[in-house]
Design a binder for these strands. Structure first.
Length: 491
RNA sequence: CGGGGUGUAGCGCAGUCCGGUUAGCGCACCUGGUUUGGGACCAGGGGGUCGGGAGUUCGAAUCUCUCCACCCCGACCA
C-alpha cells in the first residue's frame, strides 16, 4: 500500500482526491474551481489528444480555432441552448484596469465598460455557427467538419480535479451537412470513435446509447453518450455526440442552395470529450498502491531501477542497461533509467507504482552475474526474473498483454456490477446493496424518470444502442416499454 | 447556493475550549558520515505575515466581527 494513500474501501472519494495529488497529475490553483495540470498529468492528456486527433483526421476532420469570447447576444439566439448554459457563464464586462486612486493596487476602470458584454465560451456552437454562416452558400460548401482543441469555462458550484472544474480542456467537433441523414451519420460515427478510443486506448469499456430528453445537450435533438462504470459503482459520462438538427442553422440563419436550386437550412452535429477522461482513466483501473495506467497512454512505459553499493557497481549496471534502453526505444517504448542517487531503490519502487508505470525493471549485482533482470508488472503486482537476452521483445509483448488485461479486468468488473431487474423493489435493493449499472424497463415518460431520480438518486444514463431489445413493462407504472434502459448513480 | 468541517514551516498535524516566556512535533529540505534487492540510519542545520483584514486587550495562533480558500453532504452540471 502506498504510504498515506487512503484505501478505496475506506473512502473512495478521498482515495481519488489523494491519488490525483500524490501521483502528480494535478492540483488546485489559486483560482477557485480551476486546476493546475502538472507535467505528468498533462503528459497523459497529450497522449490522449494525440490519439484522438489522429482518429479525427482519419474520419475526415480538420482542426481550426474559434474565439474564447462570445458576444452575449449570440448565446440567446438558440432558446434551449441559452437556458442550459446561462446559469454557469463567466462574463467579461470591462477591458481595462487602472490604478486605484485611493491607494495601492488596481481597480476596474469604470470608463472601460464594454458596449456588449462577452461570455467566456462554455461551448462554441454559437460563435461557430455565426462563422459558418459566412462559409456556406451552396451544397458545394458542404460538409464542413471542423474540430477545435480548446479550453471552456462553466462556473461550477462544486468542483473536483478532472471530474468537474470551472475551466477544463477539451475538443469540440462541429460539423455542417446538407442532409439530415448525413448529420446523423456523423453523430453516430463520432460516438463510435469515442467508444473505440475509450476501449482500445484507455482500456475502459463503455456503453453507447441515447440520452433521454431530460439529459440531452441544450439545443440538441438527440444526444449520444458513452457511459463508463467506475470502481465505486457510479457511472461517468465520458463523451457525447449531438445531432443538432437545424436548430443552430435556424438560429444563425445558415442556409444553402441545394443541387436542385432549393434553399434549405444546414444540418449540424457537435461532439466532445474533455479532461474528464483523465478522471475515468484514474477511477477505472487504479488500486490502493496508486495509479494503474494502460501502456498505450502511459508517459513512461518502463522504469529501470539500478541497485548498487558503489559507483563501480552503477557503472557496470549502466553498461548493461544502456543497450536495453536503446532496444526498447527502437521499438517505440518509452523508458526511464532512474539512476538518480538521492533515492533508495525501495522508494523508487513505491514511486513508480504510485505513478502507474506499467513495467518496472530492477537490476543489481546478482542480476549482473546471472545476466538477468527483475521484472515487475504494475497491473498484477507480480514479479519475475527474466533473462536480459531478448528482454526488449519480451517487454514489447508484455505491454500488449497488460493493455489487454487491464481492459479485461474492467469488462469483468462491469459485467459483475451490471444487474437486470424487473421490479422497482428489486431496483432499489440492487442500487442500495450493490450499485453499478442497472438495466430496467421504463415507460419513456419524463415524470417517471424524475420520480426515480428523486427517490433513489439514480438517473437514466442512456438508452443503450446495443444489447437486449426485448419489450416489457415499466418497473414503476407497469406500462409497456420498448427495451430496458441503463440506470446508475452518476458523477 | 444551503448544512457541516478544516485552515499553524513545502506536506501532515499538536497547541485554540480556559489569552501570558523565544509557537512545537513528524515527514520533506540543507551539511557531513554510514548505507542501498520494497518507502535507510546517526549527528548537526535552515525554514513561520499561525488563511487575509478589522476589532477587544497591557498582551491574541487562542476571544469577537468579516472576508477568502479547501474538504464532506445536498440542489445544478462534461
Amino acid at each position: 500500500m502506498a504510504k498515506g494513500l487512503t484505501k478505496r474501501s475506506v473512502d473512495y472519494s478521498q482515495w481519488y482526491n489523494e491519488l490525483v495529488i500524490k501521483a502528480d497529475l494535478a492540483e488546485n490553483s489559486a483560482v477557485r474551481g480551476c486546476m493546475v495540470i502538472k507535467p505528468y498529468g498533462y503528459a497523459i492528456w497529450e497522449k490522449m489528444q494525440q490519439q484522438l486527433d489522429k482518429m479525427f483526421k482519419e474520419t475526415g476532420h480538420e482542426n481550426a480555432y474559434f474565439p474564447l469570447f462570445i458576444p452575449k447576444s449570440f448565446l440567446s439566439k438558440e432558446a434551449d441552448h441559452v437556458e442550459g448554459f446561462a446559469k454557469e457563464c463567466a462574463v467579461v464586462t470591462h477591458y481595462r484596469l487602472k490604478n486605484d486612486p485611493d491607494g495601492k493596487g488596481v481597480i476596474v476602470d469604470p470608463d472601460a465598460k464594454l458596449e456588449e458584454e462577452l461570455i467566456v465560451r462554455p461551448t462554441s456552437e454559437t460563435i461557430i455557427w455565426n462563422t459558418y454562416k459566412n462559409w456556406i452558400q451552396s451544397y458545394r460548401d458542404l460538409p464542413i467538419k471542423c474540430n477545435q482543441w480548446a479550453n471552456v469555462v462553466r462556473w461550477e458550484m462544486r468542483t473536483r480535479l478532472f471530474l468537474r472544474t470551472a475551466e477544463f480542456l477539451w475538443q469540440e467537433g462541429h460539423t455542417a451537412h446538407a442532409t439530415k441523414q448525413e448529420a446523423i451519420e456523423e453523430t453516430e460515427t463520432m460516438i463510435q470513435v469515442y467508444a473505440d478510443f475509450a476501449e482500445q486506448f484507455m482500456g475502459v469499456p463503455v456503453i453507447q446509447g441515447l440520452k433521454t430528453a431530460n439529459e440531452r445537450f441544450a439545443g440538441a435533438l438527440e444526444t449520444y453518450t458513452i457511459e463508463a462504470l467506475m470502481q465505486d459503482g457510479k457511472a461517468l459520462q465520458s463523451g457525447t455526440s449531438h445531432f443538432l438538427g437545424q436548430n443552430f442553422a435556424k438560429a444563425f440563419d445558415v442556409k444553402f442552395a441545394s443541387k436542385e436550386g432549393k434553399e434549405d437550412y444546414v444540418w449540424a452535429s457537435s461532439w466532445g470529450v474533455s479532461t474528464r477522461l483523465m478522471g475515468a482513466l484514474i477511477m477505472a483501473h487504479s488500486d490502493d498502491h496508486g495509479l494503474v495506467l494502460p501502456p498505450k497512454l502511459a508517459p513512461i512505459q518502463v522504469a529501470i531501477v539500478p541497485i548498487y553499493k558503489s559507483q563501480e557497481d552503477l557503472d557496470k549496471i549502466t553498461a548493461v542497461v544502456n543497450p536495453i534502453v536503446a532496444k526498447l526505444k527502437e521499438k517505440g517504448i518509452s523508458v526511464k533509467f532512474d539512476d538518480s542517487d538521492n533515492r533508495k531503490p525501495g522508494w523508487k519502487f513505491a514511486q513508480y507504482e504510485l505513478k502507474g508505470v506499467p513495467v518496472r525493471l530492477a537490476m543489481g549485482m546478482r542480476d549482473l552475474e546471472n545476466a538477468t533482470v527483475e521484472l515487475a508488472r504494475r497491473d498484477t503486482l507480480s514479479k519475475e526474473v527474466v533473462s536480459i537476452e531478448g528482454v526488449d521483445t519480451y517487454i514489447a509483448e508484455l505491454l500488449d498483454i497488460i493493455q489487454e488485461n487491464i481492459y479485461q479486468k474492467a469488462i469483468d468488473f462491469r459485467a459483475d456490477k451490471t444487474t437486470e431487474v424487473e421490479t422497482y423493489d428489486e431496483f432499489k435493493k440492487v442500487l442500495d446493496e450493490k450499485g453499478g449499472f442497472i438495466l430496467a424497463h421504463w415507460n419513456g415518460s419524463e415524470e417517471v424518470e424524475k420520480q426515480i431520480k428523486e427517490e433513489t438518486k439514480a438517473t437514466i444514463r442512456c438508452i443503450p444502442l446495443e444489447g437486449d431489445k426485448t419489450p416489457g413493462k415499466c418497473i414503476v407504472t407497469g406500462e409497456p416499454s420498448e427495451q430496458k434502459v441503463l440506470f446508475a448513480k452518476a458523477y
